[in-house]
Amino acid sequence: MSAVARLARVRELALAGFIALLVIVIAAQNGDFLSGSNLRSILLDITLIAALASAQLMVMLTRNFDLSIGSTVGLSAVTVGMICQQHGALPTPLAYLVAVAVGLVVGLVNGFAIARLRIPSIIFTLGMLSVVRGAVYLVADGGQVNSEDVPAGMTDLATGGPFGIPPLVLIALAVALAAFAFLRWTRSGRNVYAVGSNPDAARLHGLPVSRTVVLVFALSGAVAGLAGALYLSRFGFAQITAGSGLELTVIAAVVVGGASIFGGSGSIAGTLLGCLLLGVIGNGFAVLGVSQYWQDAAYGALILLAVIADARLRAVRRPARSAAAPKEATA
């Protein structure tokens, strides 16, 4: 294993160690932190983030960003909720399927626009963030999804489960595992890394650059759609603002998890640890009665720390090829 690979691995270990330390410190202050119900609440809190971050990682590996996911979560949650409100409760699997389909449409629009029209993803998805949020208002038509509209089958997913782990959490875990297998064991998954590491070389090697970009945005959209259903299951209602701001937390989790914002490097393991760290901080600060503002400040400090670490790691490499600096965020 090379020095940098070792460093990267150490970085994930360092993250895990930091989380463990944080848990010990918080538990020493307040024993309730380690209670079963509180741990379950942490898991539930990071469920949405973990699923979304697994997909966002793939997007970011290709040197792109998907800022539209928060709005897509809202669109999918409100769409499913309004269908149930007007036509009666959908069977849970069908509700989830509809949610995924809604997200997939948004993801495909993003993917084709960014790959074919060569629009920088950060700008295009910023536009889509507003457009999709507008669609949420249209779908909601002045109303909102109330708790009685959400099928009981959906909200049941947030409780019970084997070893007290709610099915919701298992769904998010399955998404993360699928992303892990895809990125590690398939050629398309390896192409995701290659395209982000050096887009010009990817083209010269005849890799399907555009198709890869479309694929990661489609996956990101589909997972955001799924996350909309998870949202309904978790909270049992959805306002038109559902999911807003999620994209920033998700990108923070991916970056804290060690993925490079310049593409080409990052892992699912690191991303999940990033989610866990944000979850532990959020919950721990609440348990300790620390102000919400300190939590935001801590998130911000973590992001800065992660980005500085990434920049330093890149600087260690020889200039010959690390000069593959970010040219454009497009494919």
Binding site: N191, N198, H205
Partner: peptide, 26 residues
């Protein structure tokens, strides 16, 4: 024209990685 983030073997075989198993994986 290589992929700095990927390992040597993967750069040699990028897009053509050998597969095994069922389902086939790299």
């Amino acid at each position: 024209s290589l992929f700095g983030d990927l390992e040597v073997a993967e750069n040699v075989f990028v897009g053509r990685q050998p597969k095994h198993g069922r389902p086939p994986r790299i």
